[in-house]
Design a protein around this nucleic acid. Sequence first.
DNA 1: GCAAGGACTTCCGTTTAACGGAAGTGAGTC
DNA 2: GACTCACTTCCGTTAAACGGAAGTCCTTGC
Lengths: 265, 265
Amino acid sequence: MAQGNGRSATSRALDLLGAFDVRHPTLTLTELAARCAMPLATAHRLVAALEAWGALERNADNRYQIGTRLWEIGLLSPVPRRLREIALPFMQDLYEKSKENIHFAVRDGHDTLYVAKLTGHRAVPIISREGNRLPMHSTGVGKALLAFSSTEFIDTYCARPLVRCTRHTIVEPGRLRRELAATRDRGYALTSEEMTLGSCSVAVPVFDARDEVAASLGLVVHSVRENLAKYVPDLKAEAAKIAKVMVEHHCDPYPGFVHDLPRGG
Amino acid sequence: MAQGNGRSATSRALDLLGAFDVRHPTLTLTELAARCAMPLATAHRLVAALEAWGALERNADNRYQIGTRLWEIGLLSPVPRRLREIALPFMQDLYEKSKENIHFAVRDGHDTLYVAKLTGHRAVPIISREGNRLPMHSTGVGKALLAFSSTEFIDTYCARPLVRCTRHTIVEPGRLRRELAATRDRGYALTSEEMTLGSCSVAVPVFDARDEVAASLGLVVHSVRENLAKYVPDLKAEAAKIAKVMVEHHCDPYPGFVHDLPRGG
DNA sequence: GCAAGGACTTCCGTTTAACGGAAGTGAGTC
DNA sequence: GACTCACTTCCGTTAAACGGAAGTCCTTGC
């Protein structure tokens, strides 16, 4: 028939890829069809095409997963690639000094998008992953991005429901605004078990040529550790170096990257 | 009409994604259509669908590039993700000792596929990138993978034309075989300006539970540096630790990952 | 300023390949 | 041996993909 309910074959195939996320890294055919609200036969046919090309793979227990070929293609995406190329060496320097988890993140929509992460054996195991999204109000890098964003953006963000991650997450808009003001005043963001119990973080903004926040650089430690402020000078120094290289390479507000939301500063 | 020349809409859309590679990270619509041998109007329609979903983005000069969303989805691919999770902390330890470029690679088809890379400011700039492919006979990690593969695989590999990367690349099958035998004897692979002039490397294999080579771990330095053998004990120690964790996590021959080629050992 | 060239975009009649309900297969359970 | 559940295949219908051609909008050259 080709009476596909308004959606093109291509967009349906892409929806199947979009059905995968951190919580669902593998899916059965039935789950895929259900998540995309399409008939099993349709999902079956499209999935076969995706598998033939290498976008999906089938593992030992017949579950589908994102294919290695898609990983390879995804790494060609210029935005994360350039940002990573620039940030990673400086993050490496930071890691050597601190031996803690180092994060580099940008804002995408209303989320913190983790672009790069360094970790070692001495660092606390944490949930962040490269390519992952976490809320802006419960993470160090997120708060650093949010606090230095435009007032309009902060207004929009605070007007939306604030997800509670732990009992320490700030979910009251007023308290969040005060927290963001304090962050701006001191020049760096702090969190204390707001994303995960047992973890604290400190982060600084990375500014572009127009002095708008383009990214943020942060570090996560186990909560019982000593004061986080001691990391701020190093974080600021590396953030400044990253900003300098980003400006030199014209990586500023990277057009088309931060979608459908007002930026401005 | 829907008289698409034998290919489904889905596979054509995927072919458009496949048109991008390291040499062509951005393409115009016309280039895309040409590379995929499809009419401009068709490419236009499919590209619009890919862009709407976020698989492609359009940059300032109207060129298409792989979208950030595809990068995010690609990172969900279990094989590279698990391997990276396991290998990176050990690579970090290796980096701290050597301050050189650290690579972790697997074989995919007849290529060396770079799964993880660590680099810093003190390391030599090199062409390898995560998600990239390079030949097996001209790279340290590639030779380590090749030397410890099955004899059938080595036969197949040597029978194919050996690409010359520099004037030092071994392109004679007989010489490559002797080089691989020497690699097996000494237990680690060496290269000397065989991939890039000015760079040398040393690498060791990482074995799985069945004692077949599953991956390799290597390090690249500037060619004027002192002897590479001094890095071997550390490389072997970390490779053994990675192998141990891989076996514990059942990451051995990872079904469906290394495609269409005989493995065995 | 205007024509030519090139790259992208839109239009639209034709037709075939995508659609999905239904029936078939096959592994696992009781 | 009947039941369930997940996946696979079949096949008639038809709407959605196809792509040639015409249109738009740049940029370049004279």
